[in-house]
Design a protein around this nucleic acid. Structure first.
Lengths: 331, 331
DNA sequence: GCAACGTCAGAGAGCGCTCCCCGGCTCGAT
DNA sequence: ATCGAGCCGGGGAGCGCTCTCTGACGTTGC
């Protein structure tokens, strides 16, 4: 469209040097005489030269862009992880300060997954970051087999570098807080057991209860608010005497809060509730939700660091970040 | 990294044809003998050939990727538009089904904006979509001057193709609902007046009130929950008799709900509240929030349609989508 | 004073692809 | 039988860049 942009050749002509010299200057090589370098820089500025990335990556075989793949089953498109936005922004921002670009890809359907695989194995990107996949997700496996650096946000089912938060430990914090608050009968609303976050948070709950010599009582949800409400009703039906519940995420905790209110239970007086994630809405529920916060920004940052570091130079292929209990009024 | 991928040349050799023919087949041209086409396709499959996008875009001068620029002032990074996630996903998904990729860019800081400009004018992308910018944002202006198709989500301050929802009309719907419900003194919590959405929603409120022969009473917020609460307190101070409030977005409406409760007013008995956006949280406030819903998905889809259509072939450069009043319990 | 060496710019060969142009072929019309 | 008109595949140039290799020049050492 419109006028053609200036090329290396044009800059070289203007600065009366060869293309190679211009290339050296543009790429910051030091073996260029300061005078010549200045002349080139001036020509670049005058012409408004911007390197053609296609030509460059044709020869360097790298693209300076990293795929950010969001693989979400179609059913959860709406009530998704409210942290999505923050992760995406952080990743993009970190990538940009490293001179890379984030290419966003969705992998909801099998075709979309195939497209992602083609795209990545087609050499369009220098690395790939996986977001929020389920256990049955074939993508992590496929990605692990390609010779492109890959990192997952959260522990995947297969062996792949990843950054996770301490889900087991976080659930333990929640349960110990409940025990410490004198609660006797502590139930759990678990997350989907085909997600490692769901599994690990349940494990943490069970471990902590066992250490406190308590019996567990579990209902399984799917991380949505509605499923939290349903699970809460079942729990109440199974054991009307329960006086605390740990929900594996805030959305389900909010559902539980609503179910509890409908059932005439007061929170936290009759039943204490603890969530997980510390989403924004957790601070303005009624009562404000006590929850386990994990360092989303740090996690995203660590993920970018990992994907940008060649496998050989990494300290570790897996990073686990600590969680923090945020005590509000619900427990 | 690793083994080199097969090239057109390799496929041509295997299929015993020329590079040009393989290119024709790969690009779906019809002037190829079916037998030869099959042979080529077979070779492609056997070799696992994937076109090198850098080489292709070097000659075609197009990149098949579209920039999605999120320009958000630093202060609002956290309490941002909760619809962000949905827009991003929809855009990405629409783009992918058109064979394009979304490249995510942040433009929070002046440097980041400069980088975006360089990147775009550097021919890295075939189009650009702008998200959520303020009136003072220099980017829309800069983008309008480049010869790359650009579209904005929401009406920008400068003249640029865009897709907006009917903010004026939506605010009108809200106010008429309040009037129809017998409310006499209807206040507004306006959004930031350097954003067109903030301006238009206020205009809609004023127009509708004038038609109903009522006086307006306005406090200005900045679209955050906290600012909504503050504005509500001011409003209550200014006119203790008000019996309804229209907030220019849901986050501020939620803040207003909290302020109202603290002030001992019942909703909707004493004061009716209507929000705007219909974010997910609006359905689980106490009481559930009556609000104006706008078609986020349609808006994002229309935006993609616009950026992908050459300016000459567009029906219109601006699209305005209708809103819908969602009546819950708060008004 | 001349050989040996280090420094730094230029020449040129691609990277993998598209696309223009040309030439061989088939076929119907004369 | 001859010719013109397609149709279709191949040759080859060139997109803008990087990078190796070559060679000019200036400096140092003996």
């Amino acid at each position: 469209m419109g006028s053609r942009r200036p090329t290396l050749e044009a800059v070289a002509a203007r600065a009366r040097v060869s293309r190679a010299t211009v290339s050296r200057v543009v790429n910051g090589q030091t073996t260029v005489d300061p005078d010549i370098r200045d002349a080139v820089l001036r020509a670049v500025a005058e012409l408004g030269y911007v390197p053609n990335s296609a030509a460059r990556s044709l020869v360097t075989r790298q693209t300076d862009s990293i795929a950010l793949v969001v693989s979400e089953p179609p059913t959860r498109v709406f009530s998704d992880d409210p942290l999505f936005s923050l992760v995406v922004r952080t990743v993009s921002s970190e990538l940009e300060s490293a001179g890379k670009q984030a290419v966003l890809m969705l992998a909801s359907s099998p075709q979309a997954q195939a497209r992602v695989e083609d795209y990545v194995s087609g050499g369009h990107v220098d690395g790939i970051m996986l977001l929020s996949m389920h256990g049955a997700d074939p993508l992590p496996g496929a990605v692990a087999r390609m010779d492109v650096p890959a990192v997952s946000y959260g522990r995947p089912a297969v062996d792949l570098p990843h950054v996770d938060n301490d889900n087991v430990g976080g659930a333990g914090q929640a349960v110990r807080h409940l025990v410490g608050g004198g609660r006797r009968r502590i139930a759990a609303i678990a997350g989907p057991q085909d997600m490692t976050a769901g599994q690990d948070r349940l494990t943490g709950y069970r471990d902590a209860l066992r250490s406190a010599d308590r019996r567990s009582i579990v209902a399984v949800g799917d991380f949505t608010r509605a499923s939290g409400a349903t699970a809460m009703r079942h729990l109440l039906g199974d054991d009307p005497d329960l006086d605390a519940v740990f929900a594996a995420n805030d959305l389900m905790a909010i559902g539980a809060l609503q179910a509890l209110r409908k059932a005439g239970r007061r929170v936290p007086d009759d039943v204490a509730v603890v969530g997980f994630d510390d989403i924004e809405a957790a601070s303005f529920t009624d009562p404000p939700l006590t929850t386990v916060r994990h360092p989303v920004v740090e996690q995203a940052t660590a993920m970018v660091g990992l994907v940008l570091t060649p496998p050989g130079e990494r300290e570790s292929d897996r990073v686990v970040l600590p969680t923090e209990l945020v005590v509000r009024d619900s427990a």
